[in-house]
Nucleic acid binder design. Structure first.
Lengths: 207, 207
DNA sequence: TAGATTGTTAATCGATTAACAATC
DNA sequence: TAGATTGTTAATCGATTAACAATC
């Protein structure tokens, strides 16, 4: 599609996806924008508008078929693509993410782990061995990994981003609190914990 | 202040804060909106507009004094308040956050850890003992903790949110992928990893 | 058919950008 | 003074909301 879709709309879509999944598990076969609204705290109009950006998925006078809409949104978000993921930096946070069950739940397959510390290289997290970051390019290519997760210290993050770029990943999920510079064709999402905590601090301070 | 400030503006403020801190460390004494813009990828006008929401912090023809602006933004964001923080759920993610050095760096003091698993209760993370979640209310009150971090499984998150509410915290930082219901006076920030990963998936899928 | 609910066009609202006066 | 840069008012742009026609 040519039209530019706002980041906010995509975020909402990801939330619709989540609640549709739980609705599906509850056995809800047909769902209205009103009901999606109740479960997500968005207005029904906003939901219909968001969906309309990508096509007509509902039935007038009826609502949306849960299975169908879930599948359509999954396709839009690319969650049916089984992306292969590598984590670089198996410290506390990287290790926690390696154990994160929601990767698999949402169509992501953890396929490689990297560290530079000889003490951890060779050990395993759930049957997946931690490799030497020196072999990053080779392994990323061999295993056709498309997403790199950066959980190394701030000072090393740009270097790892460069390695990942060189290895040909399509996207980077960055947990280091720093602005990474990557080529335009590589998509970067920053998970900025310090920023979100600052926001909480702001809201608490106000009253 | 009475005016409602957009969430986006506060997020940018948190980023200005970060780059001002590194500018300060580099010994930059005076900084222009142009330079802040280069370091954050926002336009100079936007930066001046954001700052203008809270007052006049600069000097015409000169720029901003780094120390002064850093301090002012810190005050706005409440980062000079030394918030006391508790983490509930010391699994992989909670444990990683307990080791997260940026808490201290940004004016947050980790003051209590809770879990319900007897196997971990009593053990320590950096001199801080893990307490039984049964004692949550008592300890939160005793230690005057204002922020609770929820890193328990999804199914238990609402229960913990209720406990925290009852104990009188002012803010909740939620890592469970679920919509929590809390009273209006309690500020909630969701750290939605699955959502952000979905966004990355969307951007990769597009090309 | 009547009721319900989607999808879309038009109106409103809010945020960003442009222009520029103020002033160091 | 001339050059630089802030702070603010006005213009533009984009996103949300309201209204309603379409139709199951």
């Amino acid at each position: 599609m040519k039209q530019i879709i706002s980041k906010a709309a995509i975020e909402r879509l990801a939330l619709y996806f989540r609640i549709l999944k739980s609705a599906q598990e509850e056995g809800v076969e047909i769902i209205s924008s009103e009901e999606i609204g109740k479960r997500t705290d968005f207005t029904p109009v906003q939901i219909r508008k968001d969906l309309a950006l990508f096509g007509q998925f509902g039935m007038k006078g009826v609502g949306y078929f849960t299975n169908d809409l879930l599948n359509k949104i999954g396709n839009i978000l690319g969650l049916n693509n089984h992306w292969k993921v590598a984590i670089i930096g198996i410290g506390h946070l990287g290790g926690a993410l390696a154990n994160y069950r929601n990767f698999a739940n949402n169509g992501f397959k953890l396929t490689a782990l990297f560290d530079k510390d000889e003490k951890v290289i060779g050990s395993k997290v759930h049957d997946l061995e931690i490799s030497d970051v020196k072999d990053l390019k080779k392994i990323i290519k061999e295993r056709e990994i498309q997403i790199g997760v950066i959980t190394v210290p701030e000072a090393e993050a740009q270097g790892v981003a460069n390695l990942l770029t060189d290895a040909g990943v399509k996207g980077i999920w960055n947990f280091a609190p720093t602005k990474l510079i990557v080529p335009n064709e590589i998509h970067l999402v920053n998970e900025d914990l310090a920023m979100d905590l600052s926001m909480l601090s702001y809201y608490i301070s106000k009253n």
